[in-house]
Simulated scan of single mutants.
Amino acid sequence: MEIDKMEFSFWMKRIMQRFDILSDHLNLNIRERMVLDDEELLDNQDILHTLKISPRTLQRYRSSGELKYFTISGKLYYKLSDVRNFIHASSNKTRPS
Protein backbone atom coordinates (compact mmCIF):
# COMPACT_ATOMS: atom_id res chain seq x y z
CA MET A 1 0.00 0.00 0.00
CA GLU A 2 1.48 3.27 -1.09
CA ILE A 3 0.44 6.73 -0.02
CA ASP A 4 1.46 9.55 -2.25
CA LYS A 5 3.22 12.54 -0.80
CA MET A 6 0.29 14.93 -1.37
CA GLU A 7 -2.16 12.69 0.47
CA PHE A 8 0.28 12.16 3.32
CA SER A 9 0.83 15.91 3.67
CA PHE A 10 -2.92 16.53 3.63
CA TRP A 11 -3.56 14.05 6.44
CA MET A 12 -0.64 15.22 8.53
CA LYS A 13 -1.85 18.81 8.26
CA ARG A 14 -5.34 17.73 9.30
CA ILE A 15 -4.01 15.77 12.29
CA MET A 16 -1.93 18.75 13.41
CA GLN A 17 -5.00 21.00 13.20
CA ARG A 18 -6.86 18.59 15.47
CA PHE A 19 -3.97 18.66 17.96
CA ASP A 20 -4.10 22.46 17.93
CA ILE A 21 -7.84 22.39 18.64
CA LEU A 22 -7.31 19.96 21.54
CA SER A 23 -4.51 22.10 22.91
CA ASP A 24 -6.72 25.18 22.80
CA HIS A 25 -9.46 23.32 24.70
CA LEU A 26 -7.01 22.17 27.36
CA ASN A 27 -5.61 25.65 27.82
CA LEU A 28 -9.12 27.06 28.06
CA ASN A 29 -10.03 24.55 30.78
CA ILE A 30 -6.93 25.48 32.76
CA ARG A 31 -7.81 29.18 32.56
CA GLU A 32 -11.42 28.52 33.61
CA ARG A 33 -10.42 27.23 37.04
CA MET A 34 -12.13 29.16 39.80
CA VAL A 35 -9.86 30.91 42.26
CA LEU A 36 -10.77 32.58 45.53
CA ASP A 37 -8.20 34.40 47.67
CA ASP A 38 -5.40 32.95 45.51
CA GLU A 39 -6.64 29.43 46.21
CA GLU A 40 -8.03 27.03 43.62
CA LEU A 41 -11.64 25.99 44.00
CA LEU A 42 -12.88 22.53 43.10
CA ASP A 43 -16.43 21.60 42.21
CA ASN A 44 -18.32 18.36 42.87
CA GLN A 45 -17.07 16.68 39.69
CA ASP A 46 -13.46 17.48 40.57
CA ILE A 47 -13.90 15.98 44.04
CA LEU A 48 -15.72 12.87 42.80
CA HIS A 49 -13.00 12.23 40.23
CA THR A 50 -10.10 12.97 42.59
CA LEU A 51 -11.35 10.95 45.55
CA LYS A 52 -13.06 8.28 43.42
CA ILE A 53 -16.20 8.37 45.51
CA SER A 54 -19.92 8.39 44.76
CA PRO A 55 -22.07 11.53 44.88
CA ARG A 56 -23.86 10.11 47.94
CA THR A 57 -20.56 9.64 49.79
CA LEU A 58 -19.59 13.21 49.00
CA GLN A 59 -22.96 14.39 50.31
CA ARG A 60 -22.37 12.42 53.51
CA TYR A 61 -18.95 14.07 54.01
CA ARG A 62 -20.57 17.50 53.58
CA SER A 63 -23.48 16.73 55.90
CA SER A 64 -21.24 15.40 58.65
CA GLY A 65 -18.98 18.46 58.41
CA GLU A 66 -15.94 16.36 57.52
CA LEU A 67 -15.45 18.27 54.26
CA LYS A 68 -15.92 22.03 54.26
CA TYR A 69 -17.73 23.59 51.32
CA PHE A 70 -19.52 26.74 50.26
CA THR A 71 -21.88 27.79 47.52
CA ILE A 72 -21.55 30.43 44.82
CA SER A 73 -24.67 31.04 42.76
CA GLY A 74 -26.14 27.74 43.89
CA LYS A 75 -23.09 25.66 42.95
CA LEU A 76 -20.97 23.85 45.54
CA TYR A 77 -17.25 24.53 45.76
CA TYR A 78 -14.41 23.26 47.92
CA LYS A 79 -11.11 24.96 48.67
CA LEU A 80 -8.13 22.89 47.61
CA SER A 81 -6.57 23.29 51.08
CA ASP A 82 -9.77 21.97 52.71
CA VAL A 83 -9.72 18.93 50.43
CA ARG A 84 -6.08 18.28 51.27
CA ASN A 85 -6.83 18.59 54.99
CA PHE A 86 -9.76 16.18 54.59
CA ILE A 87 -7.53 13.64 52.81
CA HIS A 88 -4.86 14.00 55.48
CA ALA A 89 -7.38 13.59 58.30
CA SER A 90 -8.96 10.58 56.59
CA SER A 91 -5.62 8.88 56.09
CA ASN A 92 -4.74 9.39 59.77
CA LYS A 93 -8.03 7.72 60.83
CA THR A 94 -7.26 4.55 58.88
CA ARG A 95 -3.74 4.10 60.25
CA PRO A 96 -3.42 1.76 63.22
CA SER A 97 -2.05 3.46 66.37
Rank of each mutant, 00 (worst) to 15 (best):
S64W: 03
Q17T: 13
E40F: 06
K52N: 08
N85L: 08
I21R: 12
R33N: 02
A89N: 15
F86M: 01
D82Q: 08
I47Y: 05
M16P: 03
D4L: 04
R84I: 13
A89I: 10
W11A: 00
Y69G: 01
L80I: 13
D38T: 02
L51S: 01
M12C: 05
S64K: 12
E66H: 13
N85M: 09
F8A: 11
L28Q: 12
P96F: 10
R18A: 07
S23C: 08
V83P: 04
M12R: 06
S90K: 14
H25T: 10
Q59F: 01
I3L: 06
R84W: 03
M6R: 10
I15F: 09
A89L: 13
D20V: 10
D46S: 09
L76Q: 11
N27M: 13
Q59S: 01
R14H: 05
Y69D: 11
I72N: 12
K5T: 11
D82P: 09
D4R: 05
R60W: 05
I72K: 15
I3F: 07
Y77C: 08
S54C: 00
I15T: 11
E39I: 04
V35G: 01
T50A: 07
F10I: 14
K79F: 14
R60S: 03
K52T: 05
P96K: 06
E40N: 05
L41Q: 01
L58N: 00
K5M: 06
K13G: 05
E7D: 06
Q59H: 01
D20A: 07
E40Q: 06
I21Q: 12
I3A: 02
D38Y: 03
S64I: 03
I87D: 02
Y61I: 12
N85I: 04
K68A: 14
S97W: 06
K68L: 14
I87K: 09
F70W: 07
Q59P: 00
H49R: 15
R14N: 10
L36D: 15
E66W: 12
Q45A: 05
E39T: 04
T50H: 13
H49F: 11
L67F: 08
N85P: 07
D37G: 00
I15N: 08
L51Q: 02
T94K: 15
L76Y: 07
W11G: 00
